[in-house]
Design a protein around this nucleic acid. Structure first.
Lengths: 198, 198
DNA sequence: TACTTTCATTCACATTTGTGAAGAAATGAA
DNA sequence: TTCATTTCTTCACAAATGTGAATGAAAGTA
């Protein structure tokens, strides 16, 4: 059974027709390490579901600095939002993406296009629920990110990462974690030293 | 004609039936300056549309510090999202709110409850579009906020505010603006001095 | 008006974070 | 393995931001 369909089934019970309708609009796609899965400036017209491989999404500011927005992978540690490779902002509005998504390893993914989502959603109330769960989750995620950035300093953000998603430290390079926290790599190093032996 | 209906009409053409259906589920509500319109911890079960008066939404961190999330008012300067008094996060999921919304002046508002939205949305495709416009806008807004906080420092955030929403400086007290930017009031003062005479 | 309260600014100093350079450690390739 | 490359850490110093206190301006109240 398709991994994406299996994933959706955890949330919503799908009829046989729903399952078939869904499977019919899905296709497989693969990327090589280093590929840009989503390009800043281009419109994000499909949602990709990660089957295997790690990737990261990031913003680039006016000075060319990269800031990791999120990490994406599919294993026991991953959360809901980690599976999906998409700039929701761009996807929802069909406007140019601000985000770039880059394959850190070879990626296997399942793709669902914007137009196909419209098609299946209009056919099935259950599938409509999936779309709303996904967008509510995306909203929660970005909301939490903004809250953390507004209300806490670098040390607090690192402690929160240690608490909420410590496995990221083993999966991704620390300079990427640093840009996820919004600090310089050297500052992260300093924080780690300070926290490890108080 | 109801101000909220008028507002909606700018985006979507409403049939007579739609208009009547919408007006039937709206009601007026007023608050006194200082009132809490949305309380942290309680579920946000309606969306309020500001007719008059200023308010602000804010988070409180673990140390009791307040961080302004947004300013809300309804005049020539206001944007889409400024009208609405709601914690979308809480509203979408019907979970306890993280935000508090406080009336800075006496407020007149139009209220639309969660259950009533479901009712009218299921009756009219046009009204469904309104709901999706609103949630896409909420998403864009929070996305932009997170992006700015992640990628720019205090000075850049202040310059961006000067560029994008300078009128806030005349409408709201500077210590509130400071907490919106995520800096201490004294730091905002220093930035203003530095920028006014280079 | 005078009085009180609140807010904005300024200052000195503390703390946090950034930066560039250097070396250590880890990783990957031949 | 050895060598080259990348990443992590450490350090010293610079820059940014926070903090508490003091002052004066502005706004509200009697």
């Amino acid at each position: 059974m398709n991994q994406f369909v299996k994933f959706i089934s955890q949330f919503i019970s799908l009829s046989n027709e729903d399952t078939i309708a869904l499977e019919n609009v899905l296709s497989n796609k693969s990327y090589k390490a280093g590929d840009k899965i989503v390009q800043e400036g281009s419109i994000c017209n499909s949602i990709l579901f990660t089957v295997s491989g790690k990737s990261r999404s990031y913003f680039v500011n006016h000075e060319g600095q990269e800031f990791t927005w999120n990490f994406h992978f599919n294993d026991a540690d991953s959360k809901f939002e980690n599976y999906f490779l998409v700039d929701y902002y761009s996807f929802l509005r069909q406007t140019p993406s601000h985000l770039t998504i880059e394959a850190l390893e070879d990626i296997e993914a399942i793709t669902l296009s914007y137009t196909n989502i419209q098609k299946i959603v209009s056919k099935s109330i259950n599938l409509e629920k999936v779309a709303s769960i996904m967008s509510a989750t995306a909203y929660e995620n970005v909301h939490k990110r903004a809250f953390t950035l507004l209300t806490s300093n670098a040390k607090e953000r690192y402690l929160q990462l240690l608490k909420d998603e410590p496995y990221l430290l083993n999966k991704f390079q620390h300079y990427l974690i640093a840009s996820y926290l919004g600090v310089a790599p050297q500052s992260l190093s300093r924080l780690r030293k300070e926290i490890s032996k108080p």
